[in-house]
Design a protein around this nucleic acid. Structure first.
Lengths: 296, 296
DNA sequence: GACATCCATAACCACAGGTTATCGATACTG
DNA sequence: CAGTATCGATAACCTGTGGTTATGGATGTC
């Protein structure tokens, strides 16, 4: 009998959440679809995995057994994928690097150029990461390294090489009243709605709404976005304002968006990030060295 | 990224076979369907797994990596299934036992009755196994124990409790010329086609074509069957003759099939079989004890 | 030169698996 | 106690995945 690992992930989510509706949300599925998935898994296994009640879904004995065993299956699959990816990188001479928004700004190209000098037969493939789960690609092995903004979720599980620091500014719709002013402080913005990253990103989200500079005052969230495009649109729409690295004014200049200086918020730091242990040798080591040589 | 373990099994088969067409046959699929599966797996992983040529499919580097890692994934899934099955058996009080053809003949019912005395609240569920892969259910955990004929594939990976020994006879179409004779020897049968088990069963197949009693003479295979029904039909059809346990004359008596004594072939042995370590305690231990008490 | 072998492609079909809308049952809540 | 929110199941519907047969093109083989 076979399974789609997807069913296992769904199952794990339901087991954890104890509630179909909420699990469905987390999985970006409708609740009936998830109902079907769980029923399918149960019929494939020939065992009842959950006790349904008005209070939600509770694991049965067999359900507990699966909940205990499923992570090992998923982990072994992740391992397999990483192995394939590593072999593929070796064979096709491609180093995959994820980046967030403007990556390392003006340093991005020089770093890649420096790497190509060390490894002329290799290519670097950049792929954009959403800020919903910026390290996703690193976990799964889809990507060898990433240009990240600090802090990011589960940062201590990775090696981090800081590259540059830049001040942050504030982005808002061009017709926003505050856009009249040349420069602002956090005090001016305490009542404004902010465009934020998904709640799951924890410290990352907090950093970009400057939670520490609000003196405990709660934030109004005007919209939640995952990618630069949604983010820009939301700002231009007037859904809220947002903190941004100063370089955004160069890389994301638009007539309907104004960027203004702001005082009293910590700067933003860009780093190169890779899984612990992976950077010891091979092309990734050269990429890291190239980046280190160009770091501030 | 997710996979269906099915794709992994297909992949493993192609890798092993080195040939799409033959792998498709083994998987009971059309060749284009298998082509699609492999392409899908490749696109999901973003890596080329095979080098296609006129000589077949050869693994690439990433392909080798996956071939090395896939068995672990499949094994962990099998483990998970066994865990679920065990918990389910515990919860629903069902012991599942597979059997081959006539199981343990007249001992089957007494063994089950003796088990029920020890575990009155448990049920025994018997399910027929094909001889294509008689231990399949044990590997996957679908079944807790099985009544088997010795020898069977990978026999040393299981615990084996011999239950009874019976002579073998020869089965043939009722209108077969040799059916006139009361008793036969292997020498009479050397030119006859035999009905055999699938080639993958190795020693099991050899045992039932009495490969060791032919003095090295090759066998003609009249048909390959997996189940008693096909087997009986093939014999009645005149596709060939077949060795059978003597009890077949009782359990599979048909007007169009004749069973005759044969000398010079080893007897057949029936045993109870279960995964190593599983019989130490719990209901399976009681079932084993019940069987042991009734063994010859 | 005819043929066999092997993988890819095309055209087609069924159904798995998703969606929205709705239901029935239960537990909070004012 | 009525009204409402919550939870999972069900129905009706639609699309895309994944199967099938038939066929093609390339390359060895007798």
């Amino acid at each position: 009998m076979d399974v789609d690992t997807r069913l296992l992930r769904s199952f794990a989510t339901v087991a954890e959440e104890g509630n179909l509706t909420r699990a469905a949300e987390r999985l970006y599925l409708s609740q009936p679809a998830l109902t079907k998935q769980i029923r399918q898994l149960e019929s494939q296994l020939g065992a009842v995995l959950f006790e349904r009640s008005k209070h939600g879904m509770a694991l049965t004995g067999p359900g507990e057994a699966l909940a205990a065993a499923a992570p090992a299956v998923l982990a072994s699959w992740d391992t397999a994928r990483r192995a394939v990816r590593a072999a593929d990188a070796e064979a096709s001479r491609v180093l995959r690097v994820s980046f967030l928004a403007s990556a390392a700004n003006e340093k991005t190209q020089p770093i890649i150029a420096a790497f190509r000098e060390r490894r002329p037969d290799w290519r670097v493939e950049l792929r954009q990461a959403g800020w919903g789960d910026p390290v996703a690609g690193l976990v799964s092995g889809d990507v060898d390294a990433g240009f990240m903004r600090l802090p990011f979720p589960r940062q201590d599980e990775y090696e981090v090489l800081p590259l540059l620091t830049e001040p942050r500014c504030i982005a808002m719709a061009a017709n926003h009243p505050l856009a009249q002013r040349e420069s602002l402080t956090m005090a001016d913005l305490l009542d404004e709605p902010f465009i934020a990253a998904p709640a799951a990103t924890g410290a990352f989200r907090d950093h970009w709404i400057a939670a520490d500079a609000r003196g405990g005052r709660p934030v109004r969230i005007g919209a939640v976005t995952e990618h630069p495009d949604d983010w820009l649109t939301a700002i231009a729409n007037g859904d809220g304002i947002a903190l941004a690295p100063a370089s955004a004014a160069r890389y994301y200049a638009r007539p309907d968006i104004a960027y203004r200086d702001i005082s009293g918020v910590a700067p933003s730091e860009v780093a190169l990030v890779w899984p612990k242990g992976a950077g010891a040798s091979g092309p990734l080591a050269d990429f890291i060295a190239a980046a280190a040589a160009l770091a501030d």
